[in-house]
Design a protein around this nucleic acid. Structure first.
Lengths: 133, 133
DNA sequence: CTGTATCCGGGAAGATACTG
DNA sequence: CAGTATCTTCCCGGATACAG
């Protein structure tokens, strides 16, 4: 989960797992600045602090949703960002995806049991946020 | 607190408060992507999710500290990052700074009452983090 | 010792076009 | 519809030198 691999295209010099390469192709690399995964607090922050993650999770805590519906609720977010953050949250086990094999494509995102346990975290975050200014 | 101003040097084209300029000098600018400050959850996340903030706050929840001591506890963080994150947390009212006017300089950072209320947030974050893998 | 000035690299996320 | 490919912009935080 930490040092999460992402795919990226670099046209010039880039790095693979810490080593540099100049090949122009999609590669997997580890995050440059490793997270302090020995701290439970930072672990949680890392899985929920994507730009749209709290918003998505709040929605999914209420009901299952298709990508289209998530977009409708977050019109400012690009589709790319949303699918990326959804993918990360699937990797982290917070949510699940179900594919209905049909055309046009249909998928549905839902919260996992682990994900539901975030609600007490959100409750505290919200309580504190109300005290700010 | 949101749309916090930062100073930055751009050698080419950059923007001031949303408008673009090509002057090469230090300017103040607002964040390009405004935060959704209507959500209490995101408010909290925004004030605690700097790279070293949770670590600093955890320390200050125990005792007052000088910059030197914070650095000792976080040898991987640069001085610049630490002072910057400390400054932001002062702006957000989480911590306070006391200057002893002497030479060599001496200052001391301490948690505010608002800051102490973060402990229940951290508790939940920590509890959830233990459930991750 | 505390803090700022300056420069820079890299990862996150936006825009847009395309695929199945 | 759902998702990826590609390029671009932005901004956080590291390194280093300097100032009071």
């Amino acid at each position: 989960m930490f040092n999460r691999k992402s795919s990226v295209l670099k046209s010039a010099t880039t790095h693979i797992l810490g080593y540099y390469t100049t090949f122009k192709k999609y590669i997997l690399y580890k995050r440059k600045t490793p997270l302090k995964n020995d701290c439970a607090i930072e672990k949680t922050l890392n899985v929920i602090s994507g730009k749209w993650k709290p918003a998505i999770l709040s929605q999914l805590l209420k009901t299952n949703l298709r990508l289209r519906d998530i977009q409708k609720g977050l019109p400012e977010a690009s589709k790319r960002s949303l699918t990326q953050q959804l993918r990360e949250m699937i990797e982290d086990g917070l949510i699940e995806k179900k594919d209905f094999h049909q055309f046009p494509k249909k998928t549905e995102y839902s919260i996992t049991y682990l994900g539901t346990q975030l609600s007490s975290v959100f409750q505290e975050l919200s309580k504190f946020g109300d005290k700010l200014e």
